[in-house]
Amino acid sequence: MLSRRYQRICQTLDRRQPDLTVLMEDVHKPHNISAIIRTCDAVGVMAVHAMNQVADGDVLDTYSQVAQGSEKWVDLNRHPDVTVAIDQLHQQNFKIYAAHLSDRAVDYRTIDYTQPTAILMGAERWGVSDTAAELVDGHIIIPMLGMVQSLNVSVAAAVILFEAQRQRLQAGFYDQPRLDPEFYRQKVFEWGYPELVAHYRDRQLPYPPLDSEGQIIST
């Protein structure tokens, strides 16, 4: 691994936010999925969550020309249904806010995104399901001043995520690493040596240590 690549990987991981994420409920258009993942990478989201119910099984595709390779840098966690996904995020102390027009919805800018936060985005045509709307901690909306009632799902996700980034930048969340050190080292190796990952995983071997320049230390 070249030194400049190692430095870029470390700089990116230094800014990753383990307690900010997006949950996609039945977002099925690949260009929307990819655009959301690309925005997540841009604001420092470490992992996104998704559940999809489609005719031919659990299929979640991406368009690389939209994601611009960002799907390699953002982990994608799949769930069998939205109830399971929400429960698991609640167990990790996330507050979950659905982008959902309802009587209890509040302006998205009033939320404190410096707390562990998950943003739930619903299906392109139907939005958030009734089940999910009941299970989340709150509903948020982006005020609309024109004729249309809502934004495209990937655009809405970007608007909300960049508000979360603004708050976290102001709070200094990007000033020092926030990932668990062991997880951090794991990601440095996986991002820096993707061609070797399968070798170690197939043999259930620990990843080798790296020196201060990102080179593998022979043992």
Rank of each mutant, 00 (worst) to 15 (best):
M144S: 08
T114P: 10
V155E: 04
Q7I: 10
I119G: 02
H31S: 05
A42N: 06
I217L: 15
V84S: 13
Q215G: 07
N77E: 08
T21N: 01
H139V: 11
F183N: 03
M1H: 10
N32P: 09
I119P: 02
S64F: 03
G69N: 04
A156F: 01
P116T: 03
M147Y: 10
I36K: 00
A157G: 12
D130G: 09
G214M: 08
V43I: 09
V22G: 01
Q88N: 10
P143I: 12
Q17T: 02
F183Q: 04
P194H: 11
G127Y: 08
D19S: 12
Q53A: 09
G44T: 11
V136P: 00
A98D: 03
E71M: 01
E71Q: 05
T62C: 10
Y174S: 05
P206N: 14
P30V: 09
D103C: 06
P208M: 06
A85P: 14
N93F: 10
V159N: 06
R201K: 15
L161W: 01
F183E: 02
S218L: 09
Q11H: 15
V159Q: 05
R8C: 03
H139G: 14
N93T: 11
V106S: 10
P30Y: 09
Q92G: 04
H139Q: 13
P209L: 14
M1R: 14
F173G: 06
Y174W: 04
S64Y: 04
D175A: 14
R4W: 09
E213Q: 15
F183C: 04
D112E: 07
V27F: 02
A50L: 10
P181C: 11
G214F: 10
I96Y: 04
Q170E: 10
R16W: 03
M46Q: 08
K95N: 11
V22K: 00
S154F: 00
F173M: 13
S3Q: 11
Q149N: 15
Q88L: 06
C10I: 07
Q167W: 00
S34V: 03
P80E: 11
S212R: 10
Q186G: 11
T110V: 13
Q91K: 15
W73E: 05
E190I: 06
R168V: 07
